[in-house]
Design a protein around this nucleic acid. Sequence first.
DNA 1: CAGATCATGTAAATTGTTACATGATTCT
DNA 2: AGAATCATGTAACAATTTACATGATCTG
Lengths: 180, 180
Amino acid sequence: MSLRIALLGTLAYHGPASGYELAKRFDASVNLVWQAKHSQIYPELAKMVRTGAVTVQDGGGRGRKVYTVTDSGRDEISRWATGEDPYRSVRNESALRGFLVRLLPPGEAAAVMRAEEARHTAVLAGLPKLREDVHARTAPGSPPFGDYALDLGLRTTRMLREWAADTAEDLEKHAAGRTP
Amino acid sequence: MSLRIALLGTLAYHGPASGYELAKRFDASVNLVWQAKHSQIYPELAKMVRTGAVTVQDGGGRGRKVYTVTDSGRDEISRWATGEDPYRSVRNESALRGFLVRLLPPGEAAAVMRAEEARHTAVLAGLPKLREDVHARTAPGSPPFGDYALDLGLRTTRMLREWAADTAEDLEKHAAGRTP
DNA sequence: CAGATCATGTAAATTGTTACATGATTCT
DNA sequence: AGAATCATGTAACAATTTACATGATCTG
């Protein structure tokens, strides 16, 4: 369901697109929050054509197919976004790594956390460019998609970096304490 | 892979346990970061017995089976935790909802964000109890599992709540502006 | 023309969810 | 005794990943 919604949302924000381009857009926007490979996107688009959430036209040679979200598709987005369902699927491999870090010797654990910190710093450095990319891809007239979403991405990455740094610091203290 | 690692990590932190108890522990600790149902846990445990990452014994009647992590299992954890692999799988339905919110009329969108804020506030209220539960389930002598992990959970939830509140506020301004 | 990129798909395997099924023990 | 909880599993289905496969167009 979530992939379907993410695709519909992306089409609604950035305008009609091909499966190929949707895969690109995923990398450049939703990607901090949800991922999908083309091999999952193509079948899902075909399915959405069958259920009337999107329409297809041939577009721009090379066998390119352009998908457009329908009113029915927009309704689906609204229903999902406003719907109750209390369950929120969460999966976070970075955080899982954080869960395991105490099982390592403190020195090693600290190194892992420092590496994690560096990774987040790198992501932060790339965010301004990401923001430009997203704005460049946004269809004129559509609401500024990036703003809330990118803001969330920014806050998330910042938080993870700080957590990694604080954790590393704590572990380094332990490591120092045990070999005085 | 990640489920396997999460299970091994949980066994290493909290000591030997049955599949049933592991399912419980997941709900009470890793759950902010990774989820699993018993129908996935049981087969995975059986598989790990075959590959020697854990051992089984019968324990405490009622057909209960107790799993213990082996040295080889611990090695697996270390390798995974320190391994390179730059890819980090992330899935976050709350955040996905945030992505879509701009597609709704501002008033409705603001309401969705306020609801989200309330949800996070509720989770925050439950965290002290969660911390107690985790500590109660932690085997004596093992490292304080909860500390870094719960800290991350706390920071994540706090960040999401603030983001939801700020977004709601912004949307409310828009809603007011358009119907002056 | 060769290599990069655009573009779409399918197949096989793995992972995850929902539903079904069963039985033991404890608590009231 | 009946309800709740402990406890384990399987089956069917859905979602996801990895690998395989193919061809068009553009760029140097």
